[in-house]
Design a protein around this nucleic acid. Structure first.
Length: 276
DNA sequence: CCATGGTCCTGACAGC
DNA sequence: TGCTGTCAGGACCATG
């Protein structure tokens, strides 16, 4: 379930196992992801040491001396550490890429194949200048994201605040689940035009986004071990949703049945009493 | 047929 | 007439 918290939990989960490790080879079984996995990856990266893993929005940036592997998990992607190259489980139909290190394997699985594995050579400049990254909004957990930024980013926008959050041009990492959850925490109706949010409500929403994402990362943190092994469980945060996927169930604050609507072809959940 | 975690891309349109 | 930005909708795909 890769929204920003899941990507960050993945990063933290796999980094200790592979950062500083030497890549023995790359196996690409099925290159047809959102964009083709570039041919010749193995030739470029074989023998290289993984310097570290960073995250920008929902993208994972795996740094090597020759350049960066850019990994996006799409809707259904996972990256898991499998213990030993000698005893790696047989790859399933959706296990598209293996990064084979000397002491473990990092396996990319993505049933729907909406994700991506790309390469950005160092000669092409800094990874943050990559076309997919260069115009992303600010990081929600950085100092750059606050009420002022949200206020500025929403002026003149007629789209709903829910959709404005999802687009990722103001702030990155807020997906369909956490958009609904954040708006509930801020007590804001998801249908409100983004440009009509008052300055105080922007402050409140920015804070709500930070809290929602931070809490989800925290919960995911308790399942870090699940990123090692063949079958990981999902995190525990889903047990704490206020509104997401709770259509008709009582609001945890006021008891009013949670309502479900469709915005931009995606479901939105909210409490019609608490969120005005 | 319905839904499901993401987001790029295109085309229409508005305003300067 | 461009150019820029905004917005809606389609596209990609497997699975229950």
């Amino acid at each position: 379930m890769p929204e920003l918290p899941e990507v960050e939990v993945t990063r933290r989960g796999i980094a200790p196992h592979v950062a500083g490790a030497r890549l023995a080879r790359i196996d690409v079984r099925n290159p047809s992801l959102r964009w083709p996995v570039p041919p010749g990856l193995d030739a470029v990266l074989r023998g290289q040491t993984l310097i570290g893993i960073e995250r920008r929005g929902k993208y994972l940036l795996l740094e090597y001396a020759p350049g960066w592997l850019l990994v996006h998990l799409g809707m259904t992607g996972t990256l898991r550490v499998l213990p030993s190259p000698e005893a790696v489980p047989v790859a399933g139909v959706h296990d598209h890429v293996d990064l084979v290190f000397e002491r473990c394997v990092l396996r990319y699985r993505d049933p729907r194949r909406f994700g991506a594995v790309l390469f950005h050579p160092r000669s092409a400049g800094d990874i943050l200048a990559h076309p997919l990254l260069v115009s992303l909004g600010v990081e929600p957990l950085s100092d750059a994201f606050d009420g002022a930024r949200l206020y500025a980013g929403t002026r003149g926008r007629s789209v709903s605040i829910k959709q404005a959050l999802l687009t990722g041009t103001i702030v990155v990492g807020v997906g369909n689940i956490y958009a609904s959850e954040s708006l509930f925490r801020a007590r804001i109706n998801p249908r409100l035009a983004a440009g009509k949010l008052s300055r105080p409500r922007c402050e409140k929403l920015a804070q709500a986004v930070r809290e929602t994402l931070a809490a989800a990362i925290e919960k995911g943190g308790s399942t870090l071990r699940d990123f090692v092994g063949s079958d990981g469980k999902s995190g525990y945060f889903q047990n704490e949703y206020f509104v997401y996927d709770r259509t008709g169930q009582p609001c945890r604050v006021c008891g009013t049945p949670i309502k479900q609507i469709v915005q931009g072809q995606r479901s939105t959940f909210y409490c019609p009493h608490c969120q005005k």
